[in-house]
């Protein structure tokens, strides 16, 4: 039970990896990459969690000595989300170009290398 959240994180990530490996469409593969990356959000937030900790926003009842959850990993998760969005949009643009060039987005039908 102590490591439950960590295993959920790895499970989500592996689900995304399996999706990429068995993918029949590049759009599906890009979405699976986002799923795999979502596992890292779960891991980051799980690492910073503390039982009884509150959100790290000061004021009112939350003061310097109040137990808060780790804000550093939350900031990292925010960075993670921004990078994920950037990567997804870039990959989708590439998929559009591939679809235009080869009239196919099934990775198994895109075997030929072009120089």
């Amino acid at each position: 039970m102590n490591y439950y959240a960590y295993f959920v994180a790895v499970g989500v990530m592996l689900l995304g990896v399996v999706g990429i490996a068995t993918s029949r469409s590049l759009v599906h593969a890009v979405v699976c990459l986002s799923v795999a990356q979502s596992g890292t959000y779960v891991l980051l937030i799980a690492v910073g969690f503390q039982y009884g900790g509150v959100a790290p926003i000061f004021g009112g009842q939350v003061g310097r000595t109040t137990a808060v959850v780790d804000p550093v990993v939350q900031a990292l998760a925010l960075t993670d989300i921004v990078v994920s969005a950037a990567v997804t949009s870039m990959l989708l643009a590439l998929v559009i170009q591939i679809a235009k060039r080869h009239q196919a987005i099934d990775p198994d039908r895109l075997g030929r290398l072009e120089g």
Partner: peptide, 18 residues
Amino acid sequence: HFGGDIHAYRDAAVSGTY
């Protein structure tokens, strides 16, 4: 352990923020 109360970076960040 998950949910423990040892977070060294949290403590540093909180005092810096304060």
